[in-house]
């Protein structure tokens, strides 16, 4: 088994999470034949599995991605950036020329693509392992699954692992930074928790620590399948039902932070398009 790791527009967090599997890393170290972060190989050889981290933002990255697809038997979208656009995808809110102009104030030698795309826009993907980053436990399980040919899916939402219970209440404002009650569902306490629309498998580490789920694992099967299910409509609906509060989000983009350029969220009811339209027309999205 030969494993390669390729990095595009990303933060390397997924690779670090892979290193954080500690013992598992030492176990598979000799199988990793290409990984510029930890090894000196300069050319990606033919591999059984190539993990691609990061979204596609520049023409250079697109070439790297295409080469990876050619050399890989199985190509894995490793992390939310590469599976769904992730945080890198947020750059798509603005026109590339505008990004460069506002940040650098002059032209550079390199060209950006129009959006920061998830990799499946350009190549066929065999597995998606979303998460920002996927937890070391998920990564270990996935690698084991690849090695013995049985990859386990997580088709349930974060709520199913959370352990907090819903209490029907009446609130009158959204909470952001306060310390929540440790047993009660964060949504019913007025925190914007994305657990109910987000793919599980992370063991709800965030909500267990009293932090609302930010949706880093991307949409659940159900959200992907149903054309009329969307993050904002679902959250709005739930908060209204269990907390009797008609919430108005003043920063819509942050709720979609990890899924900006994914096909899976390309729905009629989604407000992603509206955000992007606004940003590209020169407004503040």
């Amino acid at each position: 088994m030969k494993i390669g790791i390729v990095k595009l527009a990303s933060c390397s967090g997924c690779q670090i999470a892979l290193l954080d599997t500690h013992e598992k890393l030492l176990e598979i170290a000799d199988k990793v034949v290409y990984a510029p972060l930890i090894k000196d190989a300069r050319e990606l050889p033919d591999c059984d599995v190539v993990l691609v981290e990061g979204a596609v933002r520049t023409e250079h990255e697109l070439e790297v991605l295409k080469r990876a697809r050619e050399r890989a038997k199985k190509l894995v979208a490793f992390g939310s950036c590469s599976a769904l656009g992730g945080i890198s995808g947020m750059g798509s809110i603005y026109k590339p020329e505008k990004l460069i102009e506002d940040i650098y104030g002059r032209d550079l030698d390199y060209k950006l693509l129009d959006f920061a795309y998830p990799i499946d826009r350009f190549v066929e993907v065999d597995y998606y392992l979303p998460g920002c980053p996927p937890t070391p436990e998920l990564i270990s399980k996935f690698i084991d699954g690849i090695l013995n040919g049985r990859v386990e899916r997580h088709d349930y939402p974060v709520c199913a692992e959370c352990g907090r219970l819903v209490v029907h209440t009446k609130i009158d404002n959204i909470k952001k930074t306060e310390l929540p009650d440790p047993k009660v569902c964060l949504l019913s306490q007025g925190y914007v928790c994305l657990g109910s629309v987000t793919r599980g498998g992370c063991r709800a580490i965030c909500t267990k620590a009293g932090v609302p789920c930010r949706g880093c694992r991307g949409p659940t099967d159900k959200v992907m399948v149903m054309p009329c299910k969307d993050y904002l409509t679902e959250l709005h609906d739930r908060i209204e039902r269990i907390a009797g509060f008609d919430v108005k989000f003043n920063d819509v983009a942050s709720i979609y932070a990890f899924v900006f350029t994914s096909d899976m969220m390309d729905k009629l009811v989604s407000r992603i398009k509206e955000v992007i339209r606004k940003g590209r027309r020169g407004g503040r999205a």
């Binding site: 599976a83 993907v125 392992l129 899916r153 991307g218 992907m224 399948v225 054309p227 096909d263 899976m264």
Partner: peptide, 16 residues
């Protein structure tokens, strides 16, 4: 009973 598009369904199966 759930309406799925073939394209999406095939893709969803690959999310782990």
């Amino acid at each position: 009973k759930i309406v799925k598009s073939v394209y999406i369904e095939e893709k969803i199966e690959r999310f782990v």
